[in-house]
Amino acid sequence: MCETCGCPEAKNPTFGHAHHHPGTATITVGEDVLSKNNLYAEKNRALISSRGIFSINIISSPGSGKTTLLEALGHHFGQDMTVIEGDVQTTRDAERIIRSGSRAYQIQTNGACHLDAHAVGHAMDDLDLTGCRLLVIENVGNLVCPAGYDLGEHEKMAILSLPEGDDKVLKYPALFSRIQGLIINKIDLRDYLDFDMEKAINECRSLNRQFDVFKLSAKTHEGVSKLTDYLEQRMDSLKAS
């Protein structure tokens, strides 16, 4: 008997074999199920690029300091920055960003563990992007699922904070293999924790050869200017092209 489907016809029950049941037909499909998301993502990217807006998708664990970092960026960029916030529940994060001086739009995913390009596209439709130069998408706090969904951003950045431990990179290769920026946050705690920054960076290089590193403390603002300089440069080069 076939172990896969339980039918009595299969003589060689190996997993993944192709066989035909009597009376059935085979339909060729050949579709990638993420293709729909990718179409929406390309549409989003074309829209923001045509308006000269540089966009990043920030992915990290809950509590790594995403919103605190965005508050620091809000003080620097003010109304030049718009943030799309993804959270399972509450509008707390968007309220914090608005208080820091930037514009923010909250997407409540109602249980879903990541944002997708379709939801981000609707948020862009609702937003007034006049005068916006930098669009930051703050994904749902999670190192697994958000990695698989292109939202139409120009770059993905991951935040890894010192209390999480320096072993997280190889545990979540799907994310760290596709980032353009690695932000190491909470460096103000470096004297109290055993986090080996060079180890984390080297492990990330084993998966990914092209990313920039930003060591900073969103709380004390140490190192934040290197990130704001980088973003300014990327915003200018997009505008110029």
Partner: peptide, 28 residues
């Protein structure tokens, strides 16, 4: 670290490995 077996290059682009393709389906 992935190294190219042909030229020992260290910079590569992903061709496949993230797909969810529905190849075909058997139906009645």
């Amino acid at each position: 670290k992935p190294v190219c077996p042909s030229c020992s290059g260290e910079k590569h682009s992903l061709v496949s490995g993230r797909e969810y393709i529905i190849k075909n389906m058997e139906v009645l």
